[in-house]
């Protein structure tokens, strides 16, 4: 449990620090934070091998962190520094780190799904035994390319796990106004693949569902769709005033989020350990910020590099 807590905490405190750096003007542009949704990457990653691939959206910081991407490199990338990730070219919504098994974020809704299918195709053709996880939001299921990819992966029996992080909003629009069915998981049988719905704020529940899907994929039986129900504790992006959220929605989310849940269940010994972990993580985060700040901004003479081989 301590490990799980640490993993959740690293993502949460990282995201909080990203927000404060954004508000302080050190991170340009808008950032999309995953506060409240941390249990999904943490749960899924606990079931993957280091060689497996992960793909996420612009709300993908948590996936990268759970995959082991360096915090200081992430901060540096977001701050527009010459980071070892993407040299300041990608920023917060579009970075990748193939060396960490992180195929990348994507800031075009739904676009990551077919790319992840391609990684799954590589694994299948090369018979590497790898599986691929692709995460996207509830709104993304409506984008044409996502059902296209669900079907494609199904007919090709690709080792691909689709994770829908259902935080019930796409930007400012509630999912209940965007689909007529009550769940997203019921789309799975339409493609002839298993669909599982889980409490996305429960690390163990996520891990259990992911474990089954990974086993199935590794056995060559094809993709699974997992709907992980969760809630954002923050706006869609850094400047979102969230007037579209009904009264009580955020308060409920704060009671039900993964870290609050663990704390609620902890006895006094465990609570003290959690506190110690939080303090350690806070130090780790501050050190990462310091080292990111020490990195140089990219040399402008290199601005045109990297377009071609």
């Amino acid at each position: 449990m301590e490990n799980t807590f640490r993993e959740l905490c690293r993502i949460r405190l990282f995201e909080e620090r990203v927000l404060s750096l954004k508000e302080g003007g050190e991170i340009p542009g808008s950032v999309h934070l995953c506060n409240g949704q941390e249990a999904i990457p943490v749960g899924v990653l606990s079931t993957l091998e280091p060689t497996d691939w992960v793909s996420a959206t612009y709300r993908g910081h948590g996936w990268a962190i759970a995959r082991g991407v360096s915090l200081s490199q992430l901060f540096a990338e977001f701050m527009g520094r010459e980071s070892d990730l993407n040299s300041g070219r990608a920023g917060s919504p579009f970075f990748s780190s193939l060396k960490d098994g992180f195929l990348g974020e994507n800031s075009i809704v739904g676009a990551g799904a077919p790319i992840a299918a391609g990684a799954a195709l590589s694994a299948k053709i090369k018979a590497t035994g790898q599986v691929v996880v692709v995460s996207f939001g509830d709104g993304a299921v409506n984008q044409g390319v996502v059902p296209e990819t669900l079907n494609l992966a199904a007919v090709l029996d690709l080792p691909l796990i689709f994770i829908v992080e259902n935080n019930v909003y796409s930007e400012m629009s509630p999912i209940k106004d965007m689909i007529r069915s009550t769940t997203l998981v019921e789309r799975a049988p339409a493609f002839g693949i298993p669909g599982v719905s889980v409490d996305g704020n429960d690390v163990q529940a996520v891990a259990d569902a992911s474990y089954q899907a990974v086993e199935r994929a590794r056995a060559g039986k094809g993709p699974t769709l997992i709907e992980a129900k969760t809630a954002r504790l923050v706006g869609h992006y850094s400047g979102d005033a969230q007037q579209y959220r009904p009264a009580g929605d955020l308060a409920q989310a704060r009671l039900d989020e993964p870290i609050a849940r663990l704390k609620l269940k902890a006895n006094s010994d465990l609570a003290a350990q959690y506190k110690a972990i939080e303090d350690e993580v806070a130090i780790e985060i501050e050190e990462a910020v310091m080292s990111a700040r020490a990195m140089s901004t990219p040399n402008s003479t290199t601005a045109k590099d990297h377009v071609y081989a």
Partner: peptide, 14 residues
């Protein structure tokens, strides 16, 4: 020039 827009403002301005 024939390049994608980078995220880093220092490169964008250049």
């Amino acid at each position: 020039p024939d390049v994608h827009f980078p995220a880093a403002p220092s490169l964008q301005i250049a």
